[in-house]
Amino acid sequence: MSKLCMGLFSGSLDKLTAAGVILSGAAADDMDVEVFVLLQGARAFIKGNENKIDNLAEASFLKDEFLSSLEKLKVSTWYEFFEMSKDMTNVKIYICSLAGKIWGGEKLEDFNDLVDDICGIGEYLTSAEEADIHMFI
């Protein structure tokens, strides 16, 4: 079984949605997935923040158009994509401990149910080294 390692630095709605679509593709393929959530990404995983993420990293001046298109196309929310992927395949989500602290998350219970554990940067690099695919978003 192939392994995907994702470094998720971004915490904006557009990039989280892209990450979710990629994860669901990996789930369809039964891949093992490890997501390492870094700096800006960690804000989205703080408990209660999942529906508060509404900024775009790209083309933010077209936000209304982007959001209405997502709705019209019945695209799942980023959170739903992550949930679905976890239901379908072995997806582990780790928060970088520094990133968590920056947004007020110190312990596992400070984060939403998607999160499996808190980790250090060494584990991310080891995972990337061992993975068949490594991507940084």
Binding site: V21, S24, G25, A28, V75, M84
Partner: peptide, 14 residues
């Protein structure tokens, strides 16, 4: 038919 990518792939997989 009601979903965009990756919907059909996920439906097929399920």
């Amino acid at each position: 038919r009601g979903t965009a990518c990756p919907g059909p792939l996920l439906e097929a997989k399920k």
